[in-house]
Write a protein that binds this DNA or RNA. Structure first.
Lengths: 218, 218, 218, 218
DNA sequence: AATGAATGAGCCTTCATTCAT
DNA sequence: AATGAATGAAGGCTCATTCAT
């Protein structure tokens, strides 16, 4: 064993397990402060000192809960994603309740798109910054991205509807990326597009068109 | 006191027009060093000091050719885009030579996709960093981005083919973003996809499917 | 990219109100180090790094207490002025206690001159540098300068003494500048003059001569 | 001056004796460019590179004529002073032509003040910067300053007029500094004062008052 | 004589992180 | 648990000066 180096590190992944109620709340507050800064002041302003200052806790306390800045960000991204997916999943519940055979492909796609688009409301600036950062660090981890979730949904959709052949992995990926890439681009360039009917219709045509085209390899 | 380091500006946009042969070469070398760093070490490593160090020139020399770090990056991005678009445009020449009436939509799409996909070779990491940066600063300027070029091409394509109605702006944007977003995602997560036939086929289905679907608003 | 180092400002005027004992002491130490450098090494040597080095604190600590170099200098100047004026004001107390009608113009002038001259002791070099800097930035704000204080005093003096007509603003300014300019020059060229009787006598003649002459526009 | 740079300076005092006509002109042009920068862009902008750029000569050429930046400045100050004094001296010629016994002290003072005040026209900004720099480096060399010239004149004046006793050195110094200090202050804070009659009158009262008071040691 | 590309010490400033209390 | 003073590596950038051509 090369254990020469004293590693205080056996506490690293989560600096401290927030068992106490107060601790948990502190952690949450730090967390929300970070998100608020991202929202209101942009990514460059997201410094550990600023988080401390704005959260009301000392910088020391911040480091009691997060090993380093990266961990704060990682958690932020994870949380954000979790929340969005939770929202989508919840709404998909209602959809699958409705899962009679008569439900058409078109209707399903429309419902899903509406849910996905609806999931991008609210704190745009924070979200944008988060997306960028996720993007920056996401090399090779595409399938962990939100797009992957959409892919899964679309794939599930491709069973038992008028579109028989299940999507291949690449097809699901392409479709998912096409949709989420478009949404991301709209988010970055012109967020109001997300609420426009024409935009939704185009996404609809994109999705349905793809699903139909692949059956008809003309 | 900033007293010592002041303005004197008015020579800013191009710090010094390299008329001398040596100067031109130096500028080029600095430039390529920056690109190399981006490629091999990633964006955070792209510091002016690193550029100086790796290029073999002093930091002062770097600043003789670029007013500030931002200018280096801006040039890098512009250059990159220019080269890619030049490549695409050049290849499109060949395509339009061939522009008989009998050319089918499908063939055209395929040709264009091949060109677009072909335009992404080489220095992946640099490209990725560049893309991110372009992305980061592109808020609201989407139509100036590479995607816009693709949009234009697709739009041109929608005239005089079996697909009569020209694409609306939003449609062109969505289709272009869908394609380039997918390519970007592939680039980031799994560059080898760019050469796979299945990937190309999926993109083809996406594009043609969309173009057909929008005519048939079923 | 300045991306990394951004605003976050809104804490600027006083970077951190030193509530803790240690903090207060540190701030004071940094402050005094700056003054010492000004004294012993001159203004050009007053760099933030030198302050850090000589104070024994890290550069980071210096910036914990002063937002930027300018703030250090501004504080230095303000402090200097405050101290000198406080000293003058305090001593003027004693003078005005004595305010019998019989007190002659001559005696008053002499008393004031003595106070003013006495206020320039101690750290000459620092003072000189400070004066220069104050001078450099004082354009158009002459009446806020120490000379203005003297002007006020002289003006007050011109009431209720043998010299009836109150000084006009320009007259007060000229007299004050004449005195303080002379003192400044002496300070710069030959500080020992400040303690010489002949120098004081000449200043006395200058002041009283002026006050008398203006009544007698011969 | 950053004394860091190794000075092979044994060629320093005058880098090259401008014997040729062209050389002399080049030197003059560099010179005037420096003055222009000082005037129009302020002292911080006065860098050797800026001088080169604006003069049209290369930086190398500038260093052919001046060993270092300090030399440029020193020459600038010397030149400035020389010119002002020359102007004053020239005008004093006319005055002394007129030197009949009947000429009164008052008239003489007035004439001199007018000349002195007249010498401060034109390039205020440059002058101010120059003054500051002269000030900064003038420690202990007061008697070389313009004030000294004025002192000499005043002293000459004190002979053969109604004011018999010649001024002592200290008296001359005080009077000269009083006048030139006031002028300097006016220059820095409110240049238009220099042309005001009230200002001139106050200076007159200051001077004549002093000269009379010292005879009458009341 | 003149050029101007190149140099590099050094300036100001930021911010993630540590540690004594 | 929490504090916050202190740290210092690192970044962007300037400018007086040199030297090969």
């Amino acid at each position: 064993m090369k254990d020469t180096h004293k590693s205080k590190s056996n506490q690293s992944p989560a600096r401290r397990e927030p068992t106490q109620a107060r601790a948990r709340r502190t952690r949450q507050l730090i967390f929300e402060t970070a998100l608020r800064i991202l929202d209101q002041e942009g990514e460059p302003a997201l410094t550990t000192n600023r988080i401390a200052e704005l959260s009301g806790f000392s910088i020391g306390t911040v480091y009691q809960y997060f090993a380093n800045k990266h961990e704060i960000l990682a958690n932020l991204i994870a949380e954000e994603r979790r929340m969005r997916l939770a929202r989508i999943a919840a709404e998909l519940q209602g959809l699958s309740q409705d899962e009679r055979t008569t439900v058409q492909l078109a209707e399903r796609v429309r419902a899903i798109l509406r849910i996905v688009l609806g999931a991008f409301g609210g704190r745009h600036k924070a979200r944008r910054a988060l997306l960028e950062r996720a993007l920056r660090n996401s090399a090779g981890r595409l399938m962990n991205e939100p797009a992957a979730e959409i892919a899964r949904m679309l794939r599930a959709l491709s069973y038992g509807s008028e579109n028989q052949t299940p999507l291949t992995e690449i097809e699901a990926l392409v479709l998912a990326e096409a949709v989420s890439g478009t949404v991301r681009a709209a988010l970055l360039s012109n967020p109001s597009l997300l609420k426009s009917a024409a935009f939704e219709q185009a996404l609809f045509d994109l999705t349905v068109g793809f699903l139909r085209q692949r059956r008809t390899p003309a």
